[in-house]
Amino acid sequence: MWLEELKALYTGYIEKVSRLEMAKKPADGLLGFGKKVSDDPCHEAFAEELEALLERFAQAGPSSEEVRRVLSFVYHAPAAYSEPASAYWMLNAVQGLTQELVKVLSREDALKLLRQYEEDIPRSQRLPVQKKVGKALKAAAKK
């Protein structure tokens, strides 16, 4: 149930950004004219909806395995949805919303997720938020 709702949220967001990308004019955003896709309120709305979904999920008392599956999807999303570029950066940024859920993971699930995370996101390419998530996963894998 949670994973399906999460996938629907991500799919809707990617579709919205893709439509915006297709509708933009070549000069939009240049020299301050027109509107850049990255300035659209859909990005902030996506982050807020994801945060609310993750809070509801956490309050439902999920098992470690359920948390691992949800976090696996969130962490793998930037690799799965690398286009459109204006969505890609948001998909990376929202990974920071998962740090409290990492604490729910069992040692074994944290280790599995950490291995996948390190495969998906090479250390040299990690953004600051991804470094924080990596640290949280390592801590959970050591408990």
Rank of each mutant, 00 (worst) to 15 (best):
Gly34Thr: 07
Val94Asp: 12
Leu50Tyr: 01
Arg115Glu: 11
Glu15His: 10
Val102Arg: 03
Arg56Glu: 09
Leu91Gly: 12
Phe33Cys: 07
Ala23Ser: 15
Tyr117Pro: 03
Ala85Pro: 00
Gln125Asp: 14
Leu97Glu: 15
Leu101Glu: 02
Lys16Ile: 01
Asp40Lys: 02
Phe57Met: 05
Gln59Leu: 15
Tyr75Thr: 03
Arg107Lys: 14
Leu91Asn: 09
Ser64Asn: 02
Met90Cys: 14
Leu31Ser: 08
Cys42Gly: 04
Gly12Lys: 08
Ala27Arg: 04
Val37His: 05
Asp28Thr: 06
Gly29Val: 06
Arg69Thr: 06
Gly12Tyr: 13
Ser106Ile: 05
Glu48Val: 04
Asn92Trp: 13
Ala52Ser: 10
Pro128Gln: 12
Lys16Arg: 12
Lys131Cys: 10
Lys24Cys: 04
Val104Asp: 02
Leu114Asp: 01
Gly29His: 04
Gly61Tyr: 05
Leu20Glu: 01
Ser72Glu: 10
Gly134Tyr: 12
Trp89Gly: 15
Glu21Tyr: 07
Lys138Pro: 02
Ala79Trp: 03
Leu53Asn: 04
Glu65Arg: 10
Gln99Val: 15
Ala77Gly: 02
Glu100Asn: 15
Ala140Cys: 11
Lys16Trp: 07
Lys131Ser: 11
Pro84Ile: 03
Leu97Lys: 14
Glu55Leu: 08
Pro84Cys: 03
Val129Phe: 15
Glu83Pro: 00
Leu31Pro: 00
Leu105Phe: 13
Leu101Met: 08
Phe33Val: 12
Leu54Asn: 00
Ser63Gln: 05
Arg56Lys: 11
Lys25Gln: 10
Ala141Met: 09
Tyr81Glu: 13
Lys131His: 11
Val94Lys: 05
Arg115Pro: 03
Gly61Glu: 06
Thr11Ile: 14
Ala77Thr: 03
Leu137Pro: 01
Ala52Glu: 13
Leu20Asn: 01
Lys16Thr: 13
Gln95Val: 06
Leu91Val: 06
Leu20Gln: 02
Gly61Met: 06
Lys24Ser: 13
Glu15Asn: 13
His43Ile: 06
Gly32Lys: 11
Leu9Lys: 07
Leu71Asn: 00
Ala23Leu: 14
Ala141Trp: 05
Ser124Asn: 15
Glu21Gly: 01
Lys25Ile: 03
Ala8Thr: 14
Glu48Asn: 07
Ala136Leu: 04
Glu51Gln: 07
Ser82Gln: 05
Pro128His: 14
Arg107Ser: 11
Asp120Arg: 14
Val133Gln: 05
Thr98His: 01
Ser106Ala: 09
Ala77Trp: 01
Pro78Val: 01
Leu31Gly: 09
Gly34His: 08
